[in-house]
Design a protein around this nucleic acid. Structure first.
Lengths: 169, 169
DNA sequence: ATCATATGGTTGACACATCAATCAGGAGGC
DNA sequence: GCCTCCTGATTGATGTGTCAACCATATGAT
């Protein structure tokens, strides 16, 4: 752990650090892909659909202003707009105009959307447990939380703008 | 840590476990997004471009059979084919027919592609260091490696097929 | 009231990912 | 040789993500 066969410290990761990085990012990526493909197979919902339905389902009266929804799930408005278009076509949500601000749109969960979410929810959570929670020791799980917090802090730090994104389970 | 305010253990994650999961997946997702947007800004390359260029650059004679390339970076052949089409249009790679198997294609790094990779590489690695390696304590980094290994093992286990995916740094 | 500007949201263009279908060329059996 | 089956790779359709441009309404200054 002191050898440093790689670069002689010039702001670049060592070989070992790089190995960990690649392992880490590829694995989380595979995990995400696996979970979404499973969700898709079992419930005909994409990860995006699930995030939207979850947020709406948790909301008062199962409806949200479009921009609040975007903020909740951490999406750009444009992305949300496109996605809502597709979901609306499938009957999962409905867009209605907002009483208090005529520019605004309210997004409402349809009965069909609520039902789809209900059906998807348990199996999805079970999958999260199987593929993530149960794969780790309690210690590892705790450190996973720490790591997320540390990375998030660094991402939030000034210095490098251009952030965006985030996906919900 | 023993309270378990949530579900009464029925294969579902507890509230706390779910919180960690969401933190974890959202954060890694943001990290990935940030790195790719930075790569894009600094080098006009997407994460996919980088993965392809890296693999080719490491290869003997800077060329690979299409399917070997796919295996190296863990992509489906179809995804790679589409991506190579776009990269070829930009002059980063060249597709040539394979001498030993006339179905096959060989993908070769162009001078332009090699140059683009060279320019992108250092800043990208520096970004990995800043946003990942340096954000973590040595212990956390080590555990990150363990976590990746544990998750990977679970993903590789039989039981749930439908995997695919993986991205390289 | 009028005008500049900010805000909420949509749109279009394009890159990217996944799936199913396709197609050409190898490989083995006969 | 010839037929079947397998394999390497491409294609098209569709869903998804990002960016920049856009439109309409709200808001605040004057």
């Amino acid at each position: 752990m002191v050898e440093d066969t790689g670069q002689r410290r010039r702001g670049l990761p060592t070989i070992e650090e790089l190995r960990i990085w690649r392992d880490f990012i590829e694995t989380t990526e595979s995990l995400r892909a696996r979970l979404t493909s499973r969700l898709q197979r079992e419930s005909e919902l994409s990860a995006g659909d699930y995030a939207v339905l979850l947020a709406l389902n948790d909301a008062e009266k199962r409806r949200l202003r479009s921009s609040e929804l975007a903020a909740t799930i951490g999406w750009e408005r444009s992305r949300l707009s496109h996605h809502l278009g597709r979901m609306e076509r499938r009957g999962l949500v409905r867009r209605e105009e907002c009483a208090t601000d005529s520019r605004g749109a309210e997004v409402a969960l349809t009965a069909e959307g609520a039902e789809a979410f209900r059906r998807a929810s348990i199996p999805h959570l079970r999958a999260v447990r199987e593929l993530f929670v149960d794969a780790l020791t309690p210690d590892q799980l705790a450190v996973a939380g720490e790591i997320a917090a540390a990375l998030r802090t660094r991402l939030a730090a000034p210095h490098d703008e251009g952030s965006r994104n985030g996906t919900r389970a």
